[in-house]
Design a protein around this nucleic acid. Structure first.
Lengths: 362, 362
DNA sequence: TTGTAGGCGTTATCAT
DNA sequence: ATGATAACGCCTACAA
């Protein structure tokens, strides 16, 4: 086989090589049932295809059959975590088990309907994208390009009448973390919300879970919007120190303080902080240590994601871990049904169970 | 526009809607130079396309023109880092500036030539894959499917006569780290090599850089093959303690110890450790602290990657940072030339400069 | 300036 | 059991 061969071999080339017709080649290579083709012919065709290095042309097949088997996943803009990577891997595995080909599409450069058009050019059978990228217009483009399943990944509360959505119950995560902190005797609950785009919305949801628990337990609740920097974290700590002596509401980095009333006059309360994720938890714990706070003595910290690094912190970090095992399989299955069923469904799936991993920081 | 429309509109539909021929539609929508088409006609065509939600069919275009503009990047098997993600983003940006569409392809499920066939079906103009996946057979398949540029990403030392390669000079990274450690007065140099598949090879390269520096400085050198677990790291430390008193070669986790001769009888030497990357450095520093070693007093540690988290360690981690800025642009440019040039080139690029970021751990 | 027609590689229908 | 042929949507040389 010549490496520099000008044109890739076609099924016609294979047919000639094997001395059969093009149709026979197609039947053999696609293992079509019902066609009675002699084993001898089958072998000749397969051998010819191998010898020529024949690979079918996906574009041509798509054109002819009307479906590509592609599932397109535009890369999300949020900072990747091991979690996201794990989910993608699992989803990929499930989809290929069902005969689909998952591809991740870059070109974050394109916005709105322009992006949707770029996706639609490939004529995928399904698009799985962050909910916020699926504007009404974008979805129209996708649908009119014949894409059967459009799935939006979002936070709970985001809702759309036009696409299926897979959501993550961020509020429940906040609840889990906060309940644990309350059980550990924290008399103040603080939720940290990142200011980064894409993370903020999830942070707010998680924080509202914390707030709910605080209300239920009759415990003061504070939300702090925090940039990922040591300086910002240190500023937050300064406010805490003031609050410990004075007992006033605190505000950092433009945060809205909600119910910052501290217990004045009594001994300093043990603070419980849900740090949004393990990265923020690590930031917080580093700065806490620098400023002489004791963890979990003065402050109890809960992270989220259960990064491998979380176990390496001292004290070891208590964190909320996602159970990634089942979600992608469920999603893939639902997607398959929508595609096969032919109808553009409006499913609602809330996925990803989670659990608290208790370690030393609480 | 009916959302549930059965068939996606074609360029013929647009032509009818605009009252022109199919060819005119193509000319207008592709902004073909040299064609003199009245502005009024152009407007009518564009408006019709918009109204119908027309999106060209990439497969059909590929079939007709013979090239897809796709650059396919099979997802790598190694644990993703922020670094890898950053590179992909940048590469994506550069490629789309040049008119290509980068897609990441999953299906890690498929191995060897089967994987190559799956890639080839999409008829990308280029494939950028980890060097180890590009076996002779796999590359044959890709070439005979007409793919112009096959680029292998690998470590320096991996070499192939059949594909272009982009390599990272891991040895130089080891040298940079080790030179710094030597300058900081370390009288013993240790290189940690991960045992994980995919990381190990890079680790060995980096370690050999450390070894070279050790030899140049006449300083004892040790290589330790380490699993990413606290237990393994603790075992390594036990060996170190023994060595400090006895002065024997050490071996952990099946490591080949190379020149483990310690300075016996003298005061305990200050050890310099290049921990392969920041993750391993963090593991090491956690376990060092647990065992009463002082950093950088007893042991100086250098990581690699400059993760955001590295600054949060106490002491702050000295690390080797990659300059990711230029590499993807260079790669994209080279790729474009190969594709445009039409010849299957055999380029050799060594990319990614790096620099030491000195902090407190040395 | 615009229209006509042929063909890219594949699969599927209909003959044989 | 196998072969001839049409059609999928698009681009482009050539004709008008």
């Amino acid at each position: 086989m010549d490496v520099m061969s000008a044109k890739p071999p076609t099924s016609l080339d294979v047919a000639r090589e094997a001395g059969v017709s093009q149709a026979t080649v197609s039947y053999v290579l696609n293992n079509r049932e019902g066609m009675r083709i002699s084993d001898e012919t089958r072998a000749r065709v397969r051998e010819a295809a191998d010898r020529l290095g024949y690979v079918p042309h996906a574009g041509a097949r798509t054109l002819r059959t009307g479906h590509s088997g592609l599932v397109l996943v535009p890369l999300v803009d949020i900072p990747y975590g091991v979690l996201a990577v794990g989910i993608m891997e699992e989803l990929d595995r499930e989809l290929s088990r069902l005969g689909y080909t998952m591809i991740q599409y870059g070109a974050r450069r394109l916005k709105g309907v322009a992006a949707a058009r770029a996706w639609a050019e490939l004529r995928p059978v399904a698009v799985i994208a962050p909910a916020e990228r699926l504007t009404r217009q974008a979805v129209d483009v996708l649908h009119s390009a014949g894409i059967k399943a459009v799935v939006g990944l979002g936070v709970v509360g985001w809702s759309s009448e036009i696409v299926s959505t897979v959501t993550m119950d961020h509020e429940a995560i906040g609840v889990t973390a906060a309940e644990h902190l309350a059980a550990r005797g924290c008399s103040t609950l603080t939720a940290i919300v990142p200011v980064e785009d894409g993370l903020r919305e999830m942070g707010l949801r998680r924080a509202s879970g914390v707030q709910r628990v605080a209300a239920a337990h009759g415990v003061p609740y504070t939300r702090v919007d925090l940039a990922f920097s040591e300086a910002a974290a240190a500023a937050m700590l300064d406010v805490w120190r003031d609050a410990n002596s004075a007992g006033s509401a605190d505000s950092v980095d433009g945060a809205d303080s909600v119910d910052g009333a501290d217990t004045a006059g009594r001994a300093p309360a043990k603070r419980g902080v849900f740090a949004y994720n393990d990265d923020y938890a690590m930031l917080l714990m580093a700065v806490l240590a620098d400023n002489g706070f004791s963890v979990p003595g003065d402050v109890a910290v809960v992270g989220c994601d259960d990064l491998p690094l979380a176990k390496l912190l001292r004290p070891r970090l208590t964190t909320v871990r996602f159970d990634v095992a089942t979600a992608p399989a469920v999603l893939a299955q639902a997607l398959d049904e929508v595609v096969k069923g032919g109808e553009i469904g409006r499913h609602r799936l809330t996925l990803w169970t989670h659990a608290l991993v208790e370690r030393d920081s609480t």
